[in-house]
Computed example of a mutant assay.
Amino acid sequence: MVEVTLQNTFIGHQNPIYTLAIDEQNGLLYSAGNDKGIVEWDLNTLKFKRVLCAVPSSVYNLCYIIERDLLVATLRSGGILVIRKSEPELIAKLTIDKGAAFVVKAILSKNELIAIDEYGKAYVWSLNNFELLYSFQVINTTVRSLALDENKHILAAGDKNGFIHLWDIRDYHKLTSEQVHTQSVTSLAFVDGYLISGGRDAKMFKTSVPYLSKVAEITPHMFTVYGIIPLNNSLIATVSRDKTLKIWDTDFKLLKNLSRDKGIDSHHLSINSIAYIEKQQLICTAGDDKMVKIWKVVF
């Protein structure tokens, strides 16, 4: 049995929200999107805390690195900002050759930060001094989703043609590439030893690692699956352009459907991002309706 109840709705953004990040240790949530600012919310009081900082353009992706108190933001204009969150203070402004990066991840076992631009080029910086260590072409098209399993040393990326690519992070050699979806891969998550992917084709697949053979598949939503997060080793949550938040077990059995069609005060436009704070068992969702919703999950 899974129970999910809406705790609060955060308002204040003036434009669609694209990305969320969690500081679990301090119970803080960060949201950003088409506004020119990153907002900090307090999940202990369920209230607005502050506008952390202004940004020069829309933010595509946020990545919080708890071990270093750093918030990384990829910008539509192409830059990547590294912000010391507690001050706040701009620590570094990273550059890429052209276009923007939709994805960024910290690889703590190597003290590295990796981003992939919209032309498929990867950039790896040192987390110690943010020196660019190396850059290399990984694929020839846009990457929209990224997931990391540090224990197995595997980085997964999903591209706009439906392919999933796996690399060994120890030296970034490619392990495999397979076309899993018929359209763009928009979400990825490692869960209980498998890789779960969602796409613009409204499909969700469970695949083996590192061979990417399909173990299970389902059409979980009516439209694009924009987010997949593990809640524990046996449950996942998904969000979609169809305005719904759903809870599943890892065999893809639907446990909860949270939507306005079910009489629940959910989002009324596309849900673009999802985050989970395990300590408080709170799911955070945000989207085109400019709202952040906080859900309590009990299982």
Results as ranks from 00 to 15, higher is better:
48 F>M: 04
29 L>G: 03
77 S>Y: 06
31 S>R: 11
73 A>T: 12
103 V>A: 09
97 D>A: 05
38 I>W: 10
62 L>H: 03
73 A>F: 04
74 T>W: 11
76 R>K: 07
59 V>P: 06
89 E>K: 11
105 K>Y: 13
102 F>C: 03
69 D>H: 09
103 V>H: 10
49 K>R: 05
58 S>Q: 05
93 K>S: 09
49 K>P: 00
33 G>Y: 14
91 I>D: 04
57 S>P: 13
85 K>C: 10
74 T>I: 09
90 L>H: 07
34 N>Q: 10
72 V>A: 07
55 V>P: 15
44 N>I: 13
38 I>L: 06
40 E>K: 06
95 T>L: 02
94 L>K: 12
91 I>W: 05
98 K>Y: 02
52 L>Y: 01
72 V>H: 11
71 L>N: 10
75 L>E: 14
68 R>I: 05
76 R>E: 08
68 R>L: 12
36 K>Y: 04
52 L>K: 01
65 I>Y: 14
34 N>M: 06
28 L>M: 03
50 R>G: 01
82 V>Y: 01
34 N>G: 04
42 D>H: 14
30 Y>Q: 03
100 A>V: 13
97 D>F: 14
59 V>G: 06
53 C>T: 13
32 A>I: 08
88 P>C: 07
65 I>Q: 15
59 V>Y: 01
44 N>T: 10
99 G>D: 15
87 E>C: 01
92 A>G: 03
75 L>A: 03
43 L>F: 00
83 I>D: 13
94 L>D: 10
30 Y>E: 05
63 C>L: 08
72 V>G: 03
66 I>M: 07
52 L>H: 02
68 R>T: 02
85 K>H: 10
65 I>K: 05
66 I>T: 04
98 K>F: 13
43 L>T: 07
40 E>Q: 12
42 D>E: 11
84 R>V: 02
79 G>V: 02
